[in-house]
Design a binder for these strands. Structure first.
Lengths: 232, 232
DNA sequence: GCGATTAGAGAGCACTGCTCTTGACTTCCA
DNA sequence: TGGAAGTCAAGAGCAGTGCTCTCTAATCGC
């Protein structure tokens, strides 16, 4: 029978889910470095070695949390962007930016796990790259849609990108098909600026200086939209 | 005698310097989380408890490394920027940007310590803020100098910053005196974008996508210079 | 030279990730 | 239905961590 076999596998899947839930809660309060397998096991009434039946190492548990994090962020961005009218390109961009910031503020430690210093001795396996591009893909779609609709009018003040970047632009174009190289380059500027901004806020670089962070963020993202060539 | 007293204090200062040197080397190879007091002591032929005569805790050692890091980065930026003609504002900006990137590439773990995820359970003490603004101060000077010289012509495509940001702009103006609010806001965009760019590269976000990183960086920093209103 | 200060050594506490073995329980198949 | 195969929790144990305490020896100031 397959049903009996799935009975055991169901309780196994349930336990894996519970472990990641507890681990995520610990991650949220203690941070990645403070995430302890023993503490997770203790909270679940297990002994530490039992966890290794489900996760071969602490890094594997971290990988799961990273994948979940990318997916959660990606979903938040997708959801926020989908709520806007398809032809409101600037609105879609701003909604996506706000989704990133809001998610980061709500889950600072998970954000740090994704976009902060890499955990030493930990190498992100292949499985993480697909979820990682989810949020990026949304941005690519916005830029590509706007370009296709003829609503992208980048200001003529920026120099054309050097020819060497054509190959890299080709790779990035996977998420924004049909967009010319100079727009790709500007999209990268806007994209990295967004995360620079969020990282500065989350990692405390704005402490003792910037107090109206939401307003500054809003204004900066609007400026980046103009840089991209999105309409106002 | 004061000389004899300084004799003991000299060997003490020498030991403190040696500990931080060894610790910095360990930091460079293992990362912040892998920095172990015991390993440092072992390499110095001391016993771990002896270290506590010089640093009351691991966090205090980290603080010293952080301050040293900010100073090293600040010095690199200052040095690179000082080599340019005073009226070559764009050149000064680009030199500063390159200095940040070069330093980060040469000292990735130290960069992570300064601009990556904060070490959990560690709160940066007051002593770190003064060295932290050293690099920022250079940028402020460039923007302020260019503005005073009438060489700052921001493109008219960006919206004016909201009134709420005036107070924050006032604080930022400490490093770029006499600059109007909209330029301050744009300077923050450029500043955070620079670090967003460097962080993406150092923290591996460009892996499997961007290969010509130096060229992309160069191009993006040039675009940001235009956004700031610097001449070409 | 003597008392006070400072340094290093060592033991020990509570904690970590991880491995290995043991015994009990489930599932599967002849 | 009974035995083989597989799975699981538990416990002991290893090597490592930050940090505290006590003890001894050297050094310094008077």
């Amino acid at each position: 029978m397959n049903a009996s076999r799935t009975a055991r596998e169901r309780v196994r899947a349930e336990l894996i889910r519970e472990i990641t839930d507890v681990a995520r809660r610990h991650l949220a309060t203690e941070g990645a470095a403070g995430l302890s397998l023993r503490a997770v096991a203790r909270e679940m009434g297990m002994v530490s070695s039992a966890i290794y039946r489900y996760f071969p190492s602490r890094d594997d548990l971290l990988t799961t949390l990273i994948i979940d994090g990318y997916n959660a962020l990606g979903e938040a961005v997708e959801h926020a962007e989908a709520a806007r009218a398809r032809d409101d390109f600037t609105g879609r961009w701003l909604a996506g930016c706000r989704a990133v910031r809001d998610w980061a503020l709500a889950h600072p430690h998970e954000y740090a796990l994704l976009y902060g210093s890499p955990v030493p001795g930990y190498a992100a396996p292949r499985d993480t790259v697909a979820p990682a591009v989810r949020a990026t893909a949304v941005y690519g779609r916005i830029v590509a849609d706007a370009y296709r609709a003829g609503r992208l009018a980048p200001p003529p003040i920026f120099p054309p990108p050097p020819a060497v970047l054509a190959k890299d632009a080709e790779a990035v174009r996977a998420v924004m098909p049909g967009v010319p190289d100079d727009v790709v380059a500007r999209a990268i500027v806007a994209w990295t600026s967004l995360f620079g901004m969020v990282s500065f806020e989350i990692f405390g670089q704005f402490d003792n200086t910037i107090t109206h962070r939401a307003e500054l963020f809003e204004h900066n993202m609007t400026c980046l939209a103009r840089l991209l060539g999105l309409p106002d």
